[in-house]
Design a protein around this nucleic acid. Structure first.
Length: 469
RNA sequence: GGAGAGGUGGCUGAGUGGUCGAAAGCACCUUCCUGCUAAGAAGACGUACGGAGUUAAUCUGUACCGAGGGUUCGAAUCCCUCCCUCUCCGCCA
């Protein structure tokens, strides 16, 4: 069996047992990763890269993103050469220290050894400079390499080649369906103009039943997931840099986030970030796995690079609400847990009576960290197409390496990297938009899905009821 | 924001210049003993990268005591800078 087969048969792309601990250059290069993470910081398994560069290269090529480890491999080899040189010098200087320790040196001998050490130190300084540069380069390169697609991920370049796994529900036969933004504006539940006035474009104010439905959806989703065993978390919405490196958003996607001007803190782009980082740098007992969490947070994205996309309506906002599902589990169970998590997200769509389909993303369309990903797409009648409402990914140990998430196996042995999985369950704003469009009535009112009625206290949102009294 | 204390291995916690990769305790693992609301004895027990060795056992080099820099033949230990945590005060939803 080739190494590649053994690797990809787990589909997580990365061997788990092999761990690589790299010490990046201190403050060298443009990436500065602060404090404890610096030392324990890990990314793709370098050992795997050294031993099977072709296999890794082949796997990365499937992403069609122009990723290559060639430069990394070369830098790594040079670095290790420099490192041995440095170590040899250090070894000699340690020997000299030992001689001093023995206390048997004569005066002239002492002087001679002192000057030898001085020479060693100065040579070491030169080597060290080179080492530092190489380490910085290696870190930078390694952090910019995405996860390898799993073996059961179809090849493909972009979203055109994603595979439909299943579809659910009946597409409603609505004559001349109206867009959610028109309906919502008419019903007095979206105020796009004032959102812009208060913040800027792509910020929206929810009024009256809109605000209530947002809250109803949030509560319904959290309640549902809680009942299925997800423990609820309400985390900080501002996170530090290490969190974003840990879950893979940084350093590569720095333009996507809002950053505080005076503090090294970022607004979360998704609850995945704080929740996954809950256990960063920790070792969890295997007996405590799997861990299921659900969390509501507002999410903030600058949407750099999506100019002109979805400019109308409530689909692509700088601030949006989402309930997120996150799992921590052993490598053996992650494939299964991923399926179950995706199913848990689907159950929300089904409860909301929204037609949807499940897509298996092809290798070229997956996110940076994902080993495998399902997107759930909900039907938008006015657009006459399915739109993403949830993305459920399994990461293998990719995030676990970055965030140093480990577990202690029950059978003893060393701490191993665990596997992480997450998915939206669901994006709340898009869910509301989908409800508006799919449940619109000829008279311009909107039927409230049955499961939401207890949360909202009404069964229909009608124009005449639009004002909450 | 002000003042003080502190950051050491899975955890607790000693350690103020070489005998420290690091006492002790807890946890975990192995063995033995005892025998049942579990106790006792002994041993083993950090991570990473490299070299030798049968891609073994094992031996060995280097680094790591928050991070970076400095002093020194030699730093967990002394000095400087930064980060973080805790306590008290101030402010405050």
């Amino acid at each position: 069996m080739s190494p590649l087969l053994s690797i990809s048969s787990q589909f997580h792309g990365i061997t788990l047992l092999k761990s690589y601990n790299q010490e990046p250059g201190e403050n060298s290069g443009p990436i500065s990763i602060t404090s404890s993470l610096t030392k324990k910081f890990k990314m793709l398994d370098l050992k795997l890269i050294r031993e099977n560069p072709e296999a890794v290269e082949t796997a990365l090529a499937r992403r069609h993103g122009g990723f290559s480890i060639k430069e990394l491999v070369e830098i790594d080899a040079r670095l290790r050469k420099v490192q041995s040189e440095w170590e040899a010098l250090n070894c000699r200087s340690n020997e000299i220290s030992e001689l001093f320790k023995s206390g048997k040196l004569s005066g002239p001998e002492k002087e001679s050894f002192k000057s030898e050490t001085k020479e060693i130190k100065s040579r070491q300084g030169e080597v060290e400079e080179e080492k530092r540069v190489l380490e910085g380069q290696r870190t930078q390169l390694a952090l910019a390499i995405p996860n390898m697609p799993g073996a059961d991920v179809p090849d493909g370049k972009d979203e055109e080649e994603n595979k439909i796994v299943s579809t659910w529900g009946t597409i409603p036969g609505i004559k001349n369906p109206r867009h959610h933004y028109d309906l919502g504006a008419e019903l007095g539940i979206f105020d796009f103009e004032r959102g812009v006035k208060i913040a800027e474009s792509r910020f929206t104010v929810l009024m009256n039943w809109g605000a209530k439905m947002e809250r109803a959806l949030m509560n319904f989703m959290l309640d549902s997931h809680s009942k299925r065993g997800y423990s609820e978390v309400f985390p900080p919405i501002l996170v530090n840099r290490n969190c974003l490196v840990g879950t893979g958003q940084l350093p590569k996607f720095a333009d996507d986030f809002y950053k505080c001007a005076d503090d090294e803190l970022y607004l979360v782009p998704t609850a995945e970030v704080p929740i996954t980082n809950l256990y960063r740098e920790e070792v969890i007992d295997e007996a405590d796995l799997p861990i299921y969490h659900c969390a509501y947070t507002p999410n903030f994205r600058r949407e750099a690079g999506s100019a002109g996309k979805d400019t109308r309506g409530y689909i692509r906002q700088h601030q949006f609400n989402k309930v997120e599902l996150v799992k921590f589990c052993t490598p053996e169970t992650s494939a299964d847990e991923h399926e179950k998590l995706t199913r848990d997200a689907e159950l929300i769509l089904e409860a909301l009576e929204l037609p949807y389909r499940r897509m298996l993303l092809c290798s070229g369309d997956m996110g940076f960290c994902a080993a495998k990903c399902y997107d759930l797409e909900v039907w938008f009648p006015a657009q006459d197409k399915y739109r993403e409402i949830s993305s459920c990914s399994v990461f293998g140990d990719f995030q676990a390496r970055r965030a140093n998430l480990r577990y202690k196996p029950t059978d003893g042995g060393k701490a191993k990297y665990l596997h992480t999985i997450n998915g939206s369950g669901l994006a709340i704003g898009r869910a509301m938009a989908a409800i508006l469009e799919n449940n619109q009535q000829p008279d311009g009112s909107v039927r409230v899905p049955t499961v939401l009625q207890p949360y909202m206290g009404v069964s229909v949102i009608a124009a005449k009821l639009a004002a909450v009294t």
